[in-house]
Design a protein around this nucleic acid. Sequence first.
DNA 1: CTGTTAGCGCTTTCAC
DNA 2: GTGAAAGCGCTAACAG
Lengths: 345, 345
Amino acid sequence: MNHSITLRDIAQALNLSTSTISKALNDSHEIGEATKKKVMAYAAQHHYVANRMAKGLKQGKSRSIGVIVCSLDNTFAAQMLDGIDKATTNKSYQAIIMQSKESQRKEIDCMDLLYAGGIDGLLISPACETNDFNYLKGLQEAGLPVVLFDRLTDEIDAYKIGVDNFKGAYEATSHLINRGYKKIAHLNTQTNLSISTDRYNGFRQALSDHEIDFDSSYLRFCDYTDKHKLNADLEAALSDFMAMPEPPDAIFTATDQITTRCVALMNKLGYKVPQQLAIIGFTNTDLADAMNPALSTIHQPAFEMGKMAAETLIKLIERKNIDQEDKTVRLQTEIQIRSSTTAKP
Amino acid sequence: MNHSITLRDIAQALNLSTSTISKALNDSHEIGEATKKKVMAYAAQHHYVANRMAKGLKQGKSRSIGVIVCSLDNTFAAQMLDGIDKATTNKSYQAIIMQSKESQRKEIDCMDLLYAGGIDGLLISPACETNDFNYLKGLQEAGLPVVLFDRLTDEIDAYKIGVDNFKGAYEATSHLINRGYKKIAHLNTQTNLSISTDRYNGFRQALSDHEIDFDSSYLRFCDYTDKHKLNADLEAALSDFMAMPEPPDAIFTATDQITTRCVALMNKLGYKVPQQLAIIGFTNTDLADAMNPALSTIHQPAFEMGKMAAETLIKLIERKNIDQEDKTVRLQTEIQIRSSTTAKP
DNA sequence: CTGTTAGCGCTTTCAC
DNA sequence: GTGAAAGCGCTAACAG
């Protein structure tokens, strides 16, 4: 806690009252120019900085927002946090960041702590595990402004900022088909969040629009709650796929983690990419071009999504008009084609 | 800002005074068991949660710490933040995270904001650019507890948690030598921080211990302040190296960014790894094994470093004994050998 | 234009 | 064992 000077110190030094100082510093019209100048000068000279606690207590707000993501240690989340930081810093809010580690219980703990900590609003990207949104609804009903980002759900009425997952998946799948792949496998997560179903639906729609029959044995929903489990699920899925009489010739992976782990496994298991098995997936890793072959990806505007979510929340907190018809915004993904989906020979 | 009930609400409901409630809730010995029970029960039932602002104002502390890293959007930093989060959550502190983006000016802005925000202590991993620590010293002299982590400097007297960079670099270089590589290039950052010089010195020491002459044309210090500049510097360095009459046969890269970008460039430029050019470097990316060939790395205990730094800071804040002789702690790195440094044919 | 006063919610002497 | 009162630093009526 800093021990800088207080309003009273300035008041005494300048032979004025604290309220005059307060008003002067807040550039109130009630105060004369001369006094303002004097006060400002003195404050600057003595490095006065208002006590955040006192101000917050008085005004009933903390100028801080809570942020809950699955994990700090996750490229994609980190990029969104970067965007959130941009927005909060711009508007001089503090972000208190917490992680759910994909656990619904931990997520509730986070909400508890944040709420108790006196946040003015909450930005949340729910854990994969989460299927009960009552706690969150409770906070909302208690008057806490809430914005969902990245991982959305219809279970709750709130402002939501995500991407067009259906379209991204549709494009990825269509790209594979256009490159000559027909036996396309799909790896996704086990979760109720729309992020999963939207991508799955996009995949299915692309297949059917190109008149390719859907083969359910090419489909697997993996456990996402734990790195090791995910890896195990993925490895099982891959070897099952490749042991089939008609193994897939391409694979579309639905999340950042699944995509990158999958590439690692394909290297480990020695599959030739893309000759034997092409791959494209949702991932924002900077290392797509460091892989060999370079990885084709569906890239999400993570930074913008975070920034926009934070800006929306701040507007909500400050009861400003939100100039969008729909409470749900879907940003566009971008397909980045590299060698892991080179045209089929 | 949450609007839960206050001490006074409880006091009125129970026909007691606020001070009694306060003491009861803080489990003071002055209060009778019966009253305590009654108060606790009522508080729990009505979801009482103490107002952080009021408490902070009264006690002159905020139970929050400031954290400054180069960037949120950086695998290595994210892993350290994960560790910091672990420690702060354990001790029920809040971490306010800010990013310097490698700029000294921004770093000072961050410190300003954090200090004004009333943090109880500061955790900082300085920007590469930073060479003037007077501002930080100023905060320290004003009584703010400060702990440096990851990127250390002798310019300031503080608790410091880093890794043994000299040893890590020494091991990486020795590994290359033992695998039969003799013409070893080194890519490092332009900075005054010991992170850079220690690694450089470790490299030099390994060469000289193995009686290999140091060739300064195999050495390059790259601009780290901007991704594009770094990439350009790296690309220039690589093509200069490979255009030499005697190009290097291996390369030791000193940081996370340099290592991963370098791999991407080597793929792009089409060098055969490790036949033409082996590579090992400091990096914590999860994708080392997703690369082809898999990347040998020097891995740093980022999570532990962050956790330990935060724990140290909290002890400092709470004036607890710190049970370590030396104010500087150096954790051990771990060499992870994969195919990018396969023995020279 | 400036000052007085009260109070945000909490802790903490100090009385009783 | 419990309560009254003061005060942390700030803002905002309300007076003057």
